[in-house]
Simulated assay, not measured.
Amino acid sequence: MPRMPQTTMVATAPLVDTHGRVHRDLRISLTDRCSLRCTYCMPEQGNEWLARSSILSTEEIVRIARVAAAAGISTFRLTGGEPLLRPDIVEVVRALAPLETPDGPVQIAMTTNGIRLPDFLPDLVEAGLSRVNISLDTLRRDRFHDLTRRDRLDDVLAGVAAAAASGLRPLKLNAVAMRGVNDDELCDLVEFAMAHDAQLRFIEQMPLDIGHTWDRTTMVTRDEILATLSERWELTPVPGRGGAPAERWQIDDGPHTVGVIASVTAPFCGDCDRLRLTADGQLRNCLFSRSEYDLMPVLRGGAAVAAGEAVSIGVRPLDTGIDARIDDVLRSCIRGKLPGHAINDPAFLQPVRGMNAIGG
């Protein structure tokens, strides 16, 4: 592997957008490929994958992350597609883990379907992985097959067991709630999570499928989720959400909690502190954005910064050159961030990319 850049650099100004939101979280997609074919994400066949030559190298990822950390990004979440399909996943974690912000070390998290987790988890923990989220929408084999078009439920459950045994905490299980699909399993999923010392987080189904077939009527809303859970448990709101995407409730006075990510019916855009980096080097300031800021010309020899426009931020303690231009793209992306995603606006248009290509 090529020699990595130094893990620290001179601090720069925080990444603050025009609405006063300070950004501290960068979601890094390592690949658009996945071992499942979830119906709400991508079709079973006919997917057009990114060319391997367009995928960011580990060295390029670390260079971007190092500049972001100098500006205060303190959490890097590795996503996909399925990040464990990347052959050098352990090396990616090992290279990112030593990075530091002006306020201290970064944290490396990962969102995965869990299928390959038992094989990789010991090395990932040793390399510096801090947290893991595992996607699990159903506990029924027939439904899992229908939903993912693959018979891999046992592999996912083995991944959950491995994560529970690893000691990585908090351990989170993510479930997309869908009407007529898994809405009768909400309590079962919470009980499964509690048995594995994990927090179940329900996610409202969002318009992020490649085929643009999302239908609001199939989405189980935040209020419906809470009403169902309240029939079984007493739920007490947990204060101090901050920029976290999930609202949390304590279950029967604890110690367990359950979360709901209600991007559609209860948007949390006003506190959003996240940016996304696609596997092919595009920065996105919102999951639902239709605009991207291209880092590839900067990383691979071009002079363009974002959307063909070079941006200057004035005096700063960065050397001129690639790192300074990466910083320019980050700040241009931040400046272009809108107040919210406008899902509930009649004029809303889905992103061109599906979730697997954007990064979870």
Score class of each variant (00 low, 15 high):
5 P>N: 10
8 T>L: 12
9 M>E: 14
10 V>H: 02
24 R>E: 06
26 L>A: 10
29 S>Y: 08
38 C>Y: 07
41 C>L: 09
42 M>F: 11
48 E>Y: 00
50 L>F: 12
50 L>I: 15
58 T>A: 13
62 V>Q: 01
67 V>L: 02
69 A>F: 06
70 A>H: 00
71 A>R: 14
71 A>E: 10
73 I>T: 13
76 F>T: 08
80 G>F: 14
81 G>A: 08
85 L>K: 10
89 I>L: 08
89 I>F: 05
94 R>N: 13
95 A>M: 06
97 A>E: 03
98 P>E: 14
102 P>L: 10
106 V>R: 01
107 Q>P: 00
110 M>C: 00
111 T>P: 01
112 T>S: 12
114 G>N: 06
115 I>S: 07
115 I>K: 06
118 P>S: 01
118 P>C: 01
118 P>N: 00
119 D>S: 08
120 F>M: 13
122 P>G: 01
128 G>M: 08
129 L>D: 07
131 R>S: 05
133 N>D: 04
134 I>W: 06
135 S>M: 04
136 L>Y: 01
136 L>V: 02
137 D>G: 03
137 D>Y: 01
140 R>Q: 00
141 R>K: 03
143 R>A: 04
147 L>T: 05
148 T>W: 03
150 R>L: 04
151 D>C: 04
153 L>H: 06
155 D>S: 12
158 A>C: 04
159 G>N: 05
163 A>H: 01
169 R>H: 11
169 R>G: 02
174 N>V: 05
179 R>F: 14
181 V>T: 15
181 V>Y: 14
182 N>K: 05
183 D>S: 13
184 D>H: 15
185 E>F: 06
188 D>I: 11
191 E>V: 06
194 M>N: 03
194 M>P: 03
195 A>L: 14
198 A>K: 11
199 Q>E: 15
200 L>H: 07
201 R>A: 07
202 F>V: 10
203 I>P: 00
204 E>G: 08
205 Q>M: 15
207 P>Y: 03
208 L>V: 15
212 H>T: 01
214 W>H: 08
220 V>I: 10
223 D>F: 09
224 E>C: 09
226 L>W: 10
227 A>E: 15
228 T>Q: 12
230 S>G: 04
233 W>K: 08
234 E>A: 13
237 P>C: 14
240 G>P: 13
242 G>P: 06
243 G>T: 10
245 P>G: 12
251 I>D: 10
253 D>A: 15
255 P>T: 01
257 T>M: 05
259 G>A: 09
261 I>M: 09
261 I>Q: 05
262 A>L: 14
263 S>Q: 05
267 P>C: 12
269 C>A: 13
279 A>P: 11
289 S>H: 05
291 S>H: 08
295 L>I: 09
298 V>I: 15
301 G>I: 14
302 G>Q: 10
303 A>C: 04
305 V>L: 12
306 A>Q: 08
307 A>K: 06
310 A>V: 13
310 A>L: 12
311 V>R: 03
313 I>R: 04
317 P>L: 08
318 L>G: 00
318 L>N: 01
323 D>L: 02
324 A>H: 11
324 A>M: 11
324 A>N: 09
324 A>Y: 04
325 R>L: 11
326 I>S: 02
332 S>P: 00
335 R>G: 01
335 R>S: 07
341 H>F: 03
342 A>W: 00
343 I>L: 14
345 D>P: 00
347 A>M: 05
351 P>K: 00
352 V>M: 09
354 G>S: 08
360 G>Y: 14
360 G>T: 15
